[in-house]
Simulated assay, not measured.
Amino acid sequence: MEFTDFDAELAHWDDVRASTVFSGLLVGNGASLAMWKNFSYDALFDVAETTRNKPLSQTELAVFKALDTSNFEPVLSALKSAMRVNAALTISSSSPRNRYFAIKEALIHAIRSVHIPWRLVDEKSLVRINQELSQYRTVYSTNYDLLCYWAVMQSPQKFNDQFDENASFDRYQTTAKTTRMLYLHGGLHLVKNLDGSVRKLQSSESTLLGSFAINALDDVPIFVSEDSSANKQKMIRHTDYLSFCHAQLASHKDALCIFGHALGKQDRHIVDAIKHAGIKTIALSILPRSDAFIQHQKRHYSSLFEGLGVALKFFNAKTHPLGDPDLSVSIEGLNTPLPTPKP
């Protein structure tokens, strides 16, 4: 299909929703950007490499290179395993431990340099996001920031995140008439235990970002921040929670709304899961930047699902509750530095 075959018209979300019942919502980085423009960085690894506070050294970068990844979780997990092996073999090397804490500290500073501080978040905005998320049977988020988590906590009784009362992952947990909230790429509120299982950090909304990834050996943050689709898939397969969430998307039925997700080559595994599910109706948000941009986006999304008999409905992202311009918080409000995390 030629580029000129696509027009620049975008529907209003209310009209799309009125014509189709969407049981699922896939949320991408565009939803976070709607509130906080600092989420526009390309890769957290690049932020950690160049940040002025505790940047990654050449020694730490060598560990990422050796493991052929730019994701933090597999690097931190590998270093933690190295420490345990050294202890078992009575090898007195402090290098893995030093590298572990240095990389984790760089990650903490990188996260805090791009994440919206709790003090700038309008509670009314979180309530509005909560209300929108609860309209779906299942919400799949590829964002690892805390916006969805903070929004859900405004009325947590309306959601089921597959974690039990002990904050442990429970794949069999079901709650009638609630929205399942699944984090496909993990999140800042999720950590991996020594046995590889995943648990949810229990903390108040206001302190969770401040206490994120406190430099303790047992808590490895579990989130897929960037890297190739193939490497993301490896990480997903080796984490029980992530593999469960991915399987749920791959078996989703009925119509799916995709908001703020570019579905680029680095997220090919997400596209493959949607294709595997055999979804026949998909609504996709597009920012109305220009006619050329709208046409380009339509062509991109259409090429992903070409020949599958999928009905695509394109709508103006700003007409969706998650893209409402009123949600935007001015970066100018960040006029004081965030506290330095304690080791």
Results as ranks from 00 to 15, higher is better:
E2P: 05
F3T: 05
T4E: 14
T4M: 12
A8I: 08
E9P: 00
L10Q: 02
D14M: 01
T20W: 00
V27D: 06
N29I: 13
A31F: 06
M35W: 07
W36F: 00
N38Y: 07
N38V: 01
D46N: 14
S57T: 15
L61C: 05
D68P: 08
F72L: 09
L76Q: 09
L79Y: 02
S81D: 14
T90N: 15
S93W: 08
S94V: 14
P96S: 13
R97Y: 13
R99K: 15
L107F: 10
H109F: 15
A110P: 05
A110K: 07
P117Y: 07
P117D: 06
L120P: 00
V127R: 12
I129T: 02
Q131S: 13
Q131L: 10
S134G: 03
S134W: 02
R137F: 05
N143E: 00
N143R: 12
Y144Q: 00
C148M: 11
A151T: 02
V152L: 12
V152P: 01
P156A: 14
P156V: 08
K158H: 06
F163V: 07
N166S: 07
F169L: 11
D170G: 10
T175V: 15
R180A: 13
H185E: 08
N193G: 04
V198N: 08
R199D: 08
L201M: 15
S203D: 13
S203F: 06
L209M: 11
G210C: 04
A213P: 05
I214A: 07
D218V: 04
D218L: 09
E226R: 00
S228A: 12
S229E: 03
S243G: 01
C245F: 00
H246A: 15
Q248T: 05
L256Q: 03
C257D: 10
D267S: 02
H269I: 04
I270A: 07
K275F: 02
K280D: 04
T281G: 01
A283I: 06
L284V: 12
S285Y: 09
P288T: 02
K298F: 00
S303L: 09
L304R: 12
G309N: 09
V310E: 07
K313A: 06
K318C: 08
K318E: 10
H320C: 03
G323N: 05
P325I: 10
S330V: 14
E332H: 15
G333F: 12
L334C: 06
L338P: 03
